[in-house]
Amino acid sequence: MINILLFADLAQQAKTERISIEVHSPLNVEEVRTLLQNEVGKLSGIENALLAVNEEYVELTDQVNDGDTVAFIPPVSGG
């Protein structure tokens, strides 16, 4: 099971902030992004999102393991 977190505009489009997907072998963040959109539909702008696994920034090609939390982080606007 991989937990996926969405925020701001991405959460609004997906109509959820959190979704879990079953996986049977390790995969990378890009593959998680594809599986996510198979579940909730195309998310406009997700290719511009920052990526985090277990609260640390990662790259698209980094591996995701069973139990990990993957966050898609739209360009930030704090301050």
Binding site: A8, V29, N48, A49, L50, Y57, V58, P74, P75, S77
Partner: peptide
């Protein structure tokens, strides 16, 4: 939502 609408900020590598 500010920051993600205009596509002015992009992160090709997935992170800043």
């Amino acid at each position: 939502w500010i920051g993600n609408q205009k596509g002015t900020t992009t992160y090709p590598a997935g992170h800043p």
